[in-house]
Simulated assay, not measured.
Amino acid sequence: MIVSRILVTGSADGLGRAAADSLLSAGHEVVVHARNPERAAGLDALSDRGAHVVVGDFAERDAVRRVAAELNDGKPLDAVIHNAGVWSGPAVMPVNVIAPYLVTALLRGPRRLVYLSSSSHFDGRPSTDGVDWRGGKAGSYSDSKLFVTALAAAVARLRPGVLSNAVDPGWVPTKMGGPNAPDDLELGHRTQEWLASSDDPQALTTGGYWYYGEQLEPHGSVHDEDFQDRLLRTLAEETGTVL
């Protein structure tokens, strides 16, 4: 096995925590992320095992930029699992779309990128008109997951040396999913770990939409290059940062 250095955003709990724990157990170098010092304190069990901790509220663009700059100053990353996400409220677009876009644009080096999608992306609207990217009001979770799935496909197209994929982890019993979620938490984090670290030939592919180790067909607009380009232009204008 080749040891990789892997960033898992939003890893204080839930799927991100499970992925970070599993990757550490497999012998990889892991960078974990929490949105504030209080939540970072809960990562002591992982940092005691060698994980590096970065802290920044991904609802705030300046914090995302600070985290990216800190990571660029350190040991190069091999992979990023863009796990951080929120279900509702004004932070939906800033956390679910703006943050992974900025991290992708700013980080130097990662050759594998994994973005967390959702089956909810099938209900998203392939239009950026009227979207409140700054979180002044609640955004559509479905739209945000369609956007980030299209972002993954766009990166796969525009960066041929990078493996970029989207993963639907299922509806699992996390704080976001709720205690009665029907899917398997253990299976919910395995596909993104595999895509981030495995030398399996299937894991060395790009531009896929994955669910529990199987590649599925996403929303029709995900691979629409015109939509991808419109989305990237909008995000570049909104953030002042070109991918």
Rank of each mutant, 00 (worst) to 15 (best):
V3L: 03
I6S: 10
D13W: 00
G16V: 03
R17W: 02
L23E: 09
V30I: 10
N36G: 09
N36E: 12
P37W: 06
R39S: 09
A40V: 02
L43T: 01
D44Y: 03
A51R: 08
V53Y: 10
R65H: 05
V67W: 04
E70S: 09
E70M: 01
L71M: 11
N72E: 12
G74P: 05
G74Q: 12
G74R: 09
D78S: 07
A79E: 12
V80K: 11
S88T: 07
M93S: 01
V95A: 12
V97A: 12
I98M: 13
A99D: 07
V103A: 15
L106R: 05
L107V: 03
R108A: 15
G109D: 05
R111T: 10
L113N: 06
Y115S: 09
S120H: 09
S120A: 15
R125M: 07
D129L: 03
D129A: 07
W133T: 06
R134C: 00
G135L: 08
K137N: 12
A138H: 00
Y141Q: 11
Y141H: 01
Y141N: 10
Y141I: 01
L146N: 14
A156R: 03
A156H: 09
L158K: 10
V162M: 02
W171E: 02
W171C: 00
T174R: 03
M176I: 08
N180V: 00
A181C: 04
L185Y: 03
E193N: 14
L195W: 03
A196W: 01
A203E: 13
T205V: 02
G208K: 10
Y209N: 09
W210F: 12
Y211K: 14
G213I: 02
E217S: 15
G220K: 09
G220R: 14
S221P: 07
H223Y: 06
D226I: 01
D226N: 11
L232V: 06
T234L: 07
L235P: 05
E238D: 10
T241F: 04
